[in-house]
């Protein structure tokens, strides 16, 4: 171990990740989430394609590192990364901004009737907004203005052909 260990002191460990666990009230949901039992899935239209590995690879920065961009001309933070600035129309003059470690507040939210998942719009503390799933909270606990942080998750909402889809979800900030 070197002195670099000092840089990661205080980071959340296993205990802290287990602490906000919520007990699921029915066994069937648990079995389904664990993939131990297959349940009927929502039938989807042809517009839902299988995930594309080249697409995921091209967008790996905005998916895995949750990079947005900041326009160097006008300073506007935008997600996902753009080539033409939404505010000042400048082309290709951005710097990357890491959003995964930013906190945010729920701007609006709702519940998807197909999957039961809450989803919403989150405004990041230093600019930028994301449309994403909200997790680790019962729907009734959510409210506009609630403080959230981003958590890296595996999305398994639809059939997959073996290409896993990972992305960030917003979760209430743990006390």
């Amino acid at each position: 171990m070197t002195e670099e260990i000092e840089k990661v002191r205080g980071h959340r460990g296993i205990t802290d990740h287990l602490e906000p666990k919520r007990v699921i009230s029915d066994y069937a949901t648990y079995l389904k989430w664990r993939g131990l039992v297959k349940m009927a899935e929502p039938r989807v239209t042809h517009t839902i394609t299988y995930p594309s590995a080249p697409s995921i690879w091209r967008e790996r920065n905005r998916i895995f590192a949750l990079h947005g961009v900041k326009c160097k001309t006008c300073g506007t933070v935008q997600y996902p990364p753009q080539r033409i600035c939404a505010k000042c129309q400048t082309k290709d003059n951005f710097e990357a901004v890491r959003l995964s470690d930013k906190k945010g507040r729920i701007f609006s939210f709702s519940q998807d009737p197909l999957t039961g998942s809450p989803e919403g719009l989150v405004n990041f503390e230093d600019g930028g907004r994301i449309a994403c799933y909200l997790s680790d909270a019962g729907f009734e606990e959510l409210e506009i203005g609630q403080l959230v942080e981003m958590s890296f998750r595996k999305l398994e909402l639809l059939r997959s052909d073996g290409i896993p889809v990972y992305f960030w979800k917003a979760i209430p900030v743990r006390a």
Binding site: I63, S110, Q111, D112, S117, A131, L155
Partner: peptide, 12 residues
């Protein structure tokens, strides 16, 4: 094709 966007059905 990345499929990371949340599934938005119109009521949502």
């Amino acid at each position: 094709g990345t499929r990371v966007e949340p599934l938005y059905v119109p009521p949502t």
